[in-house]
Design a protein around this nucleic acid. Structure first.
Lengths: 131, 131
DNA sequence: AGTAAAAATAATAATAGTTACTGTTTTATA
DNA sequence: TATAAAACAGTAACTATTATTATTTTTACT
């Protein structure tokens, strides 16, 4: 098996994700990290983000508007996506803790997680539209 | 305003999506339609799929494994995604009808829909792993 | 039916996002 | 310190998707 070795770059990526709560894209992370490691490569960012997702330390958010986003907040929470500007924000709605178990009852595979995206129009876009 | 004009290709794409229930990718649809319209172009498929999604006649599914899928089944239902093989299937779990309203209470934008993806390992991959 | 304007098309080029490759550097172990 | 494995930077390649353009189809109006 392939054993994991420490890397400063990966630690920095993880720290970056834990500090910012704006669901950054891989490129957003890359630009942040470059301030500390000016010659980190974008491939390294992607490789480590995918690794962190596999390790379960980070979540990848795919919701159909623009590139994937990454989130180190593993607490149970949902997201809201604006169909007009593509922005994404946390939704402090308490998710049903037993939802995975409920879903498991009607699924022959093994379920261990779920992601919910609410779609609509964000406050800013609603304002713009009313002008 | 831009008025919509009929096109045989678009009708065929819609029909294809309503007939097959396997959440095809744009390319899957393209290959299907080519049997009836051998020189339809992939761009036409993408343009019409996006149009149908905007019109609310079709849903686009993005869930982080492989290309987007399309679904003409607008009934309330959820999806299960296998983290190993990337397959996606319907989950006959009755979604909470009031969930949009609940979420609306803690959101300043306007919510009109939500999508939930359950993640795990599908039956086939579970079997493969046990060998 | 014939015609003109708008929309849609096929074919292709271009772009965006992401992954793969390669020679070098870093990390962990002995 | 020497070695092997893993990670790296830099770059090329690839996949999915969108944009461009000249041609065809649709529709509304004679």
């Amino acid at each position: 098996m392939k054993t994991l070795k420490y890397s400063r770059q990966r630690e920095s990526i993880k720290t970056c994700l834990m500090e910012r709560h704006d669901h950054p894209t891989a490129d957003n992370v890359y630009l942040s990290i470059r301030e500390e490691y000016p010659n980190i490569s974008l491939g390294t960012v992607y490789r480590n983000l995918n690794l962190l997702v596999e390790l379960g330390e980070v979540r990848k958010l795919s919701f159909g508007y623009g590139p994937d986003r990454f989130d180190a907040d593993l607490s149970l929470h949902y997201h809201f996506v604006c169909r007009e500007c593509g922005c994404i924000s946390d939704l402090p709605l308490e998710p049903s803790a037993q939802l995975n178990e409920k879903a498991q009852c009607c699924c022959q595979g093994h379920i261990d997680n779920h992601l919910t995206y609410f779609y609509g129009v964000c406050q800013d876009c609603l304002k713009k539209n009313s002008h």
